[in-house]
């Protein structure tokens, strides 16, 4: 598989796993009926990342403040390694995300997981974003001009 395509797919999957709710992830995972044996390589462990912004929005980077993150790495019995990192301190979710990442090293399994787990969650997150966008749009000011005088 093309490395760039594989990397992009992995990144997209990680983006969904990092943002999804734990309950939703657990329920979709349960439906998949997978119980792969795995050993922890690292974590799950909570720590900090320093969040950066840019001066003026697009200039030099600066440190804004830290955030809690949790990271985990696991190995499956076939030797596949999975990694995960997400904001917050939800160890169980991040461990499961790392297992999912490891399973997706296998192209067939990745296709199944994408279809049954990642895609539904991505869609729900997109719907939630769209609702936000539309709620914000409803507060947009529509200016009108009052014409006064004769001209």
């Amino acid at each position: 598989m093309n490395i760039a395509v594989d990397q992009a797919a992995r990144r997209d999957r990680m983006a969904v796993l990092a943002r999804c709710s734990t309950e939703r992830l657990n329920s979709l995972w349960a439906k998949l009926g997978l119980q792969p044996a795995h050993t922890p390589l690292r974590g799950p462990e909570a720590g900090l990342v320093m969040l950066r912004g840019r001066i003026g929005g697009t200039g030099e980077p600066f440190n804004v403040g830290e955030a809690t993150v949790t990271r985990a790495s696991v190995t499956l019995e076939d030797g596949s390694v999975g990694h995960a990192m997400a904001l917050g301190r939800d160890h169980a979710k991040v461990r499961l995300s790392a297992v999912i990442d490891a399973l997706c090293r296998n192209a067939e399994m990745a296709a199944r997981i994408d279809a049954e787990l990642i895609q539904p969650m991505r869609q729900e997150l997109e719907v939630a974003d769209e609702t936000r966008r539309q709620q914000t749009a409803a507060t947009r000011v529509d200016f009108f001009t009052m014409v006064r005088g004769e001209d």
């Binding site: 462990e45 720590g47 900090l48 990342v49 320093m50 950066r52 914000t136």
Partner: peptide, 21 residues
Amino acid sequence: RTTLPRFGHSEPVDTGAMLIE
């Protein structure tokens, strides 16, 4: 904060690509 290890830093966030509220 002082009880947690620092794992690193983020890429600078892009406020131009913000989901605006």
